[in-house]
């Protein structure tokens, strides 16, 4: 099985205060720590597990600056074989569709059975890449995938997609395909020290838009369908009703509201 896994480096905002920067189009990332996008971490693990079961190679691809190498190397340290990083000023400001175009151009030159991505990114949350990538590569795709089983003929896979309420929708998909992986599909491993040392020796191929045969106008902001205009903090709504009083009173008020709205 030839497997490709696309990974994104994102800021960790779970425990940090987030401020909009001077441009108004981004957040101030100067004090944030970065790491692999959570879903992508599961995608890497899924690819490596399939390789370990069925053989083959795992190629890690990431679009972004040199700092992304750390995320790529960690995936290599866990069992990835080869790596490509897409770096070009022309890629800046791209939406999910533009990113998918760059990734697709890089993947077209590879033999692949399955391309894994995360189902969505922790930072922009567009969830566009897996679907766009499937379309651009001309192969079927499935997203929010929480189970993957390669069928015996090696030409199809049974995948479970997560629906609301924890339901799984099972479908058969023909390979090659693109799968957008949801968190919780597996238990991502920790890289061993040995793996980290070996990964340090592996080469990461750097490709520009020109290397991929892409015109700068096709990618980045100019190649996007959606362009980010500005960030604003959420407006404090007037819908919120603050209940006051001691716990007994507030509980009674809350219960009355829930009952009135037919929520209990």
């Amino acid at each position: 099985m030839n497997l490709v896994v696309c990974v994104k480096r994102v800021p960790d905002t779970a425990e940090s205060e987030v401020h909009i920067d001077a441009s108004g189009k981004d957040i101030d990332k100067s004090r944030l720590s970065f790491g692999i996008n959570e879903c992508d971490n599961y995608a890497v693990e899924e690819a490596i597990q399939i390789k370990e079961r069925l053989g083959g190679t795992v190629t890690v691809i990431s679009l972004g600056p040199k700092e992304n190498d750390e995320v790529i190397r960690m995936a290599l340290a866990k069992g990835g074989d080869e790596a490509i990083r897409l770096e070009d000023e022309a890629f800046d400001g791209g939406d999910g569709f533009a990113v998918a175009k760059a990734l697709a151009a890089a993947i077209k030159g590879l033999e692949f059975d399955i391309v894994f991505t995360g189902a969505l990114a922790d930072d922009d949350g567009y969830a566009v890449v897996p679907a766009a990538l499937g379309e651009l590569l001309g192969v079927p795709h499935a997203t929010y995938v929480k189970k993957v089983e390669i069928l015996e003929d090696g030409k199809r896979a049974k995948v479970g997609r997560e629906l609301e309420g924890g339901l799984l929708e099972f479908l058969e998909i023909e390979l090659p395909c693109v799968l957008g992986i949801q968190t919780g599909i597996n238990e991502p491993r920790y890289a061993s020290f040995k793996g980290i040392k070996q990964a340090a020796k592996k080469e990461i191929a750097i490709k520009s838009a020109a290397d991929l045969g892409l015109d700068p106008s096709e990618v980045g902001e100019s190649g996007s369908w959606a362009v980010l205009e500005k960030f604003t903090p959420p407006v404090v709504g007037e819908m919120a009703e603050i209940l006051e009083g001691d716990p007994e009173e507030t509980a009674a008020k809350l219960a009355a509201i829930l009952k009135e709205k037919g929520l209990v």
């Binding site: 750390e70 190397r73 960690m74 980290i196 990964a199």
Partner: peptide
């Protein structure tokens, strides 16, 4: 190498 190890 050390940064990745710390992260792990």
């Amino acid at each position: 190498e050390k940064r990745l190890f710390r992260q792990t």
